[in-house]
Amino acid sequence: MVQVRLWGSLASAIGDQTEVEIEAGTLGELLEGLAERYPALRPQLDRGVSVAIDGLLYNDSWFTPIKEDSEVVLLARLEGG
């Protein structure tokens, strides 16, 4: 199980839970698992999120491995200039 930290707006969507647990070995599994377990997150997941895994930023790479003890934080989708 991976602990996933949610930002405030996502937490409010699922009854103020700021952390959830998901069975996932990769980023793709994580995003899919979240959408399935927490349908209220789906609109935001569809709009796009960025994910910090152990302090580094990821956007789309489904097969990025996630370890059981990885720190996983969902972030609003990031864009640069």
Binding site: R5, W7, D54, G55, L56, E71, V73, L74
Partner: peptide, 16 residues
Amino acid sequence: NAAREGTRASYGPTYR
């Protein structure tokens, strides 16, 4: 008050 390696960032993750 500076963030350092190991600080939990205000936006969530822990800094390397």
